[in-house]
């Protein structure tokens, strides 16, 4: 009896010691030398692993930051300037502040503006739909409405508005990681600067068809008439391929173009209303992108 106990203890102890040695040797042999600063940087990151920075995840981004010469090349869109400052201080380097961005849906092809010409009957995915054909409306450039951007957004910032059939970006939640921009097969979503007090002016259309064709497909289409470009005092607007584009780095938010646009394709959002109506209060973040606001704005002009 006693002998059994002694033997058991002896064998188990021996086995334990032996395995400990094996584990130690293996751990030594396969040890990966890593810069300890990578861990420190990673701790500062949001940990969303969204890939918005262009790296495979937060750890990869931390490594990228540590290894890169110039921190200005690295930017974590989710964490923003705060996080980048912290990263810079961890690494003992400097980083310039970047302007905050937000995703903007550049299509106003609501069910009303852009009537359906056929019925899509396949898998509800923009990619599948785009690979098949131009879409179920007359416009072959605009939003397809299957919500690939909604499913790809890790921050729940995009929802589909059932009334318009278009995605709506929640500016509070949007981190400008750019996942939706990459996903959208039609390139409808763009990252634009948040702008002074969140005020932005942009062309809500990407239709490259000629004016008449675009107008026929959608009432709110940019027809490439160049009126906005002519009226812009800051040369911020260019018209290329029958569609206008406002360079947000040059735009001074004067809204002259908004008044000029014959199809109301230029949207101005989050501007304070001059004569405020109760239902058109400016601070209504979840509805700020939709079609309602710009029309209100236009009435004011």
């Amino acid at each position: 009896m006693t002998q059994t106990i002694i033997w058991t203890i002896a064998i188990l102890t021996l086995l334990g010691a032996l395995l400990a040695v094996v584990l130690y040797v293996v751990a030594e042999k396969f040890k990966v030398e890593e810069d300890p600063r990578i861990d420190d940087v990673e701790k500062e990151l949001p940990g969303a692993n969204c890939g918005g920075c262009g790296q495979a995840g937060c750890r990869a981004f931390a490594q990228f930051c540590v290894e890169s010469e110039d921190l200005d090349k690295c930017f974590c869109p989710v964490g923003g300037n705060d996080v980048m400052q912290k990263v810079a201080s961890v690494l003992g380097r400097e980083v310039a502040a970047k302007e905050p961005m937000v995703a903007v849906v550049r299509c106003n092809g609501t069910c009303e503006n852009r009537p359906k010409t056929n019925e899509y009957g396949g898998y509800q995915s923009c990619r599948v739909k785009a690979a098949l054909y131009s879409g179920d409306t007359g416009c072959s450039f605009g939003c397809l409405g299957c919500g690939d951007c909604v499913s790809v957004c890790q921050f729940g910032a995009i929802t589909m508005d059932p009334a318009t059939g278009l995605p709506v970006v929640d500016e509070e939640k949007c981190t400008a990681c750019g996942a939706c921009v990459k996903t959208c097969p039609k390139g409808v979503i763009e990252l634009r600067n948040k702008g002074r007090r969140n005020m932005r002016v942009y062309v809500s259309c990407v239709n490259k068809d000629k004016g008449a064709v675009a107008r026929k497909a959608c009432k709110a289409a940019c027809i490439g008439c160049s009126k906005c470009a002519k009226v812009c005092p800051f040369e911020a607007i260019t018209v290329e391929n029958n569609v206008a584009y406002i360079d947000y780095t040059k735009c001074k938010l004067c809204k002259k173009c908004v008044a000029e646009c014959p199809t109301a394709a230029i949207h101005a959002v989050n501007f304070p209303v001059v004569k405020p109506k109760p239902e058109a209060a400016p601070c209504h973040p979840e509805r700020s992108e939709g079609s309602v606001k710009p029309e209100v704005e236009k009435k004011e002009e």
């Binding site: 359906k116 010409t117 056929n118 019925e119 899509y120 009957g121 396949g122 898998y123 599948v128 690979a131 098949l132 054909y133 179920d136």
Partner: peptide, 9 residues
Amino acid sequence: MDKLIVSPS
């Protein structure tokens, strides 16, 4: 026939 259906094969 109202609107034609379009779907992948």
